[in-house]
């Protein structure tokens, strides 16, 4: 249950991304014309400007590009205070995109830049899942 945490606002551009996560799939946007992958989801391929984009399943594998350990919760739900300290990383996926995610770890201080990680899924509702990554 995630009753008092903010949820993404589902719209026509991001609905498949969050729906996919609720079904244990990490879907990323790929341009049918030029093959560019991009994140976060957008209405157009930022590289070739084609509007023909498809959703492809990511390997879910990547490495930590950068990370932070949150010690104090500001400008967000107080619910997160129960979880501090927690680690959030910018994860670079093999498919050539980066996304921000929680890192599941007993001790966040063990995380290092470059560490290999793999996605795990947290289902929040029928329409929404969130990606999390664990250290390999």
């Amino acid at each position: 249950m995630q009753n008092d945490k903010p949820l993404p606002e589902i719209d026509p551009i991001n609905s498949q991304f969050f729906k996919g996560l609720s079904e244990d799939k990490l879907l990323i946007q790929k341009c049918i014309k030029c093959g560019n992958t991009q994140f976060y989801p957008k209405a157009i391929c930022v590289k070739c400007y084609s509007v023909d984009l498809e959703w492809v399943k990511s390997s879910g594998e990547g490495k930590v590009y950068s990370f932070t350990e949150i010690n104090r919760v500001i400008m967000n739900s107080k619910e997160f205070e129960k979880e501090v300290p927690y680690v959030i990383a910018s994860v670079e996926l093999k498919e050539g995109i980066r996304l921000y995610s929680r890192i599941l770890s007993e001790n966040g201080k063990n995380v290092k830049i470059g560490d290999p990680v793999r996605v795990v899924f947290r289902t929040v509702s029928e329409e929404i899942g969130l990606p999390e990554f664990k250290l390999l």
Partner: peptide, 15 residues
């Protein structure tokens, strides 16, 4: 921020 940062517990510009 609303869609990809706040749901995972980020804390705005500081994070």
């Amino acid at each position: 921020e609303i869609n990809y940062e706040m749901p995972i517990g980020m804390v705005g510009p500081l994070s």
